[in-house]
């Protein structure tokens, strides 16, 4: 009797396991890469952004960089702009960022960098011409690096200097760089998901080399923007895809660890 019951249990398990397996495989094969874009009208909302911040090991760095996928977007309503960038506060409170933007009539893929002095100064945004972001559907490096005496250079690729500015400081201090996809203005556009891989690298103080961020933490602004379809998809160590998705899974809330 016991033996029969045991066999019956094993039989049920045996019958169920292919179903479980099939479900797991199906789940694995429908990871977020397959999600389709589906524009929604979100006019009137705040400018949202989503991405990853480095951990405390990236503090006090003398440079940071990201490798971001260049996607063209011909459906950005004016005057909305979509930005994909890496940025950080510096030790003295300056805010700096570098990456690329897409817009409708104007640059459909142009590099840009931006800085904001501490204590409520005025923004300076500098941008290149249409098509200057880099070849579409390829990755491009964007970096900001301290080049000496308080000057920082913004660089595209390995050696294309976009500009050099004086910030009078040599490191980021107690600040971590962040790689972000951001919608500038809210006029109903859809923030195309892009890859950041590696999302965040930093140049430790005194080092000549960049190092990959050991940890990455989710960044969401506003913090509940998953409701507006913004999401962060972890594709590997220091490898994410961020933007707006039809069916966000909201795996990573603001501040939650993504890797490391």
């Amino acid at each position: 009797m016991d033996e029969r019951r045991c066999l019956a249990v094993l039989g049920i398990l045996g019958l169920l396991s292919p179903l479980v397996t099939a479900s797991i495989i199906a789940q694995t094969s429908t990871q977020p890469l397959d999600r389709q874009e589906n524009p929604l009208n979100l006019a009137g909302m705040l400018d949202p952004s989503v991405g990853a911040r480095g951990g405390t090991t990236t503090y006090w760095s003398e440079g940071f960089k990201t490798r971001v996928y260049i996607v063209p977007d011909y459906n950005v309503p004016d005057p909305e702009a979509h930005y994909y960038w890496i940025g950080s506060h510096l030790a003295n409170g300056y805010w700096i960022q570098v990456g690329y933007l897409t817009a409708h009539e104007r640059p459909r893929g142009a590099w840009f960098y931006c800085y904001l002095p501490p204590a409520g100064g005025d923004y300076v945004v500098r941008k290149g011409p249409d098509g200057s972001a880099g070849p579409t559907y390829t990755y491009m490096y964007y970096s900001a690096i301290h080049v000496g005496d308080g000057y920082w250079s913004f660089v595209k690729g390995g050696d294309e200097y976009l500009g050099t500015e004086f910030f009078d400081v040599d490191s980021t201090g107690y600040h971590a760089p962040a790689s972000i996809a951001e919608k500038g203005g809210e006029y109903g556009g859809w923030l195309k998901p892009v890859y950041f891989n590696p999302a965040i690298s930093y140049k430790p103080r005194g080092s000549s080399y960049f190092r990959q961020a050991e940890q990455g933490y989710a960044y969401r602004e506003p913090t509940d923007n998953c409701n507006q379809n913004y999401d962060i998809v972890r594709l590997g160590f220091n490898y994410i895809q961020v933007g707006q998705y039809t069916n966000p899974t909201c795996d990573y809330g603001d501040g939650e660890k993504i890797w490391g």
């Binding site: 400018d47 817009a103 904001l116 923004y123 945004v125």
Partner: peptide, 16 residues
Amino acid sequence: APPTIPPEDIPETPIS
């Protein structure tokens, strides 16, 4: 893992 990095206010990038 629980968040271990302090939150930070990142400024919004202005549009043209």
